[in-house]
Write a protein that binds this DNA or RNA. Structure first.
Lengths: 186, 186
DNA sequence: CAGCTATTGTAGCAGTCGCTACATGATGCT
DNA sequence: AGCATCATGTAGCGACTGCTACAATAGCTG
């Protein structure tokens, strides 16, 4: 349909043009019950063509998860500020507050679907979840307070607390995490 | 259609006899893609009868989730010791270590499916997840070190860290949580 | 025993699933 | 121009989904 160009491999072009549309659909409708026909419709094509381009639903999902992990990595620096924070607690509070805003809701839903899939043994889900996790942990390490006595361990401490807080947001018990963060230093 | 009752109602009996078998199947095979016919087979009956007893798949799942939350509550005291721990960190390490053992794996998988479902807006999932959460938090509060300066806030702090650690277990990054817990006091 | 209601089996409906066979159009190379 | 490869549409397969219509049984009450 859309004329690519004369140079690089048409097949790959098509995949790369489809992935953002597929990712949009997955972010809006979730990953759990996704099926080819609605997915194709959202991308303006047919299930027939999705299988033609990706080979199988499994392969499509694997590629899509990689794409989503990359997408997440790219958006991290755009969303979070670049200067180091004043304290561990300030950083944690800021990250949690940002992640709670509505634009993040689809990403968080996807995140927990990845965790559930990983917990159930799905390797693609696990790999994608690990990629996203490492991304955020890396960001934390690079934005620790400059005078922090243990930046590596501290980042991991903060990361653990952040993930716990996000889980409680997911089930509607944010106040438990807020109290936990507020209770003493980190 | 279904007669209200006249006596101790056979209908209820049947449901209560089915629920443990259904719960077993869900713990073994996950909650995400569960369907009536395999579920019925695991319980030694037919999809026809599951719908007869529960009315609809949705109603069955709602009841099953309640049952699972109760099951979890009952097993908590059996699994964890009853005497207060020496320190916050000791308790956290002990809970995390216990929850990492293989017998807990099916429950953890179910747990993350509940979180994912809750994050996606499923009220039944959210309610069941909250019930389980409150159970563990209650246990923590009752088993704080006797000299703890802030038992309520401390329990929430510990709970947040525990849940973060369990998430990292799910995606195969336990060492991050371990380092986070080890880095300083809680 | 008759009659009623609770329970259960059989069969099937309409829909969706991932996937494929086949044919056709489009494109590019020689 | 002729041919070959790529791209795409149509149609459908067999399996599975939740659910239901219908009929037969089982067990109790009168």
């Amino acid at each position: 349909m859309v004329k690519p160009d004369t140079l690089p491999v048409k097949e790959r072009m098509s995949r790369e043009m489809l992935l953002p549309l597929l990712a949009d659909h997955v972010l809006q409708h979730g990953l759990a019950g996704v099926s080819l026909r609605p997915l194709a419709k959202a991308a303006g094509t047919s299930d027939r063509m999705l299988l033609y381009h990706f080979g199988s639903k499994d392969a499509l999902l694997a590629e899509l998860l990689k794409y989503l992990a990359d997408l997440y990595a790219q958006s991290l620096d755009a969303v979070f500020p670049s200067e180091p924070a004043a304290s561990r607690k300030d950083t944690v509070v800021q990250v949690v507050r940002t992640t709670r805003t509505p634009p993040f809701a689809p990403f968080m839903r996807l995140w927990w679907e990845l965790v559930a899939g990983a917990s159930g043994g799905n390797e693609h889900y696990r790999a994608s979840a690990q990629a996203m996790m490492d991304q955020l942990l890396g960001w934390l390490e690079q934005h620790m307070p400059i005078d922090d006595p243990d930046p590596v361990g501290g980042a991991r401490r903060m990361f653990t607390i952040i993930e716990g807080a996000l889980m409680m947001d997911a089930v509607g018990r944010s106040e438990i995490a807020d109290a936990g963060i507020a209770a003493g230093e980190l």
